[in-house]
Amino acid sequence: MITAFLLIAAVQAAPSDRLEPLTLTDDRACTADGAWCVGLVQDEEPVVRPIVRAAGALPPGLEASDGAVETFQPWVRLARLPDGGFLAGVEVGLSSMYSGGGGQATELRLYRLNARGDAGTMPVLAVPIGAELMIRACFSEEDMKQRAGACHDEYGFDATLTAAGDAGDMPVFDYVTTATAYPRGASRLEDSLEKPPLKPADLVTVRDPKCSFSRRFTFDAVAGEYRPDSALPDCSDYTVP
């Protein structure tokens, strides 16, 4: 009897706003039972927002223009809110190519939707969740020698956003990032050819402690958006292609 009581109490205390995994198919992401799907609509440039509908009630997906460098897809998570609404997201990808390199980055924009599944035009949270950049660093045989054959600087950024319980009617999120650079000492703010020559021991991928961090985001009802427990550092060297 005591065991049964504890089990019931645990069920009642479970968070009401937990993230549900979605399966991405074509231009929509749906719950496992197919009852709810997240699609994307475009109001006007450059606003793309999610909507939540039953599987057969979503409008046609966005059409990508030829040569576009910006892409959009639904986030593969969904949170149901006590008021009947949802939290749903859009992953916005941006890519850029230039002489001797290029990169791509993805930002997650999270929106609060009403019980009908409609979102406003402004996200309640926007954070980078991934990036890969490569920048040419050799332009001559002398440069190759100074760089020990490592003729590209490479930058990586990876982040996760996970539910960490509830605060009132809105979930709390933990945001954890990892930023890396190759080779040791690589920086987009400095000319590597003006530094001392690289050694074989420098040809390693190094974690950047400044841009490898964790923050907790809580919804600020007055501001109408999520706020971190402390300010985020400037990591544009990793997240802007």
Results as ranks from 00 to 15, higher is better:
V124M: 07
L133I: 14
Y98S: 11
G101K: 09
R116E: 13
V69M: 09
G101C: 10
S99H: 06
S96L: 14
M122G: 04
L78W: 05
R136H: 11
E63N: 10
R80W: 05
Y98P: 00
R80F: 09
V90S: 02
R80P: 00
G117L: 11
V90H: 03
E107K: 14
V127K: 09
P82T: 08
A131P: 01
R80I: 05
G100W: 06
I135T: 13
C138N: 12
A115W: 10
M122N: 12
W75C: 01
L108R: 01
T121V: 14
L78N: 03
D66V: 09
E91K: 12
S96C: 08
L113Y: 06
P128D: 11
A126N: 02
G102S: 08
P128N: 10
A115Q: 14
W75F: 09
T121F: 12
V127R: 13
E91A: 08
D118H: 07
R112K: 13
W75Y: 11
I129V: 15
F72K: 01
L125E: 07
A119T: 06
R136K: 15
V124H: 04
Y111V: 04
P74Q: 01
A68M: 13
E107Y: 11
E132V: 10
L81K: 08
G67S: 02
L62C: 05
T71Q: 11
A68E: 13
I129C: 10
A105N: 15
G89D: 03
F86T: 00
A115G: 09
E91T: 07
R136T: 06
E132T: 12
L108A: 02
E91Y: 03
A131W: 03
R80M: 10
S96G: 08
T106I: 12
N114D: 15
T71L: 07
R116D: 12
M134C: 00
A137G: 10
P128F: 07
A64W: 05
S65P: 00
G103Y: 01
E70A: 08
L87T: 00
P74E: 03
V90R: 03
Y98T: 03
P74W: 01
S95C: 04
M97W: 10
I135N: 12
A68W: 07
S65R: 13
V76L: 11
L108E: 03
M134T: 01
L94S: 15
L81R: 07
M122W: 10
P74I: 02
L81A: 06
T121G: 14
V124R: 05
R77M: 09
T106R: 14
A137W: 06
Y111E: 07
S95P: 01
E70P: 00
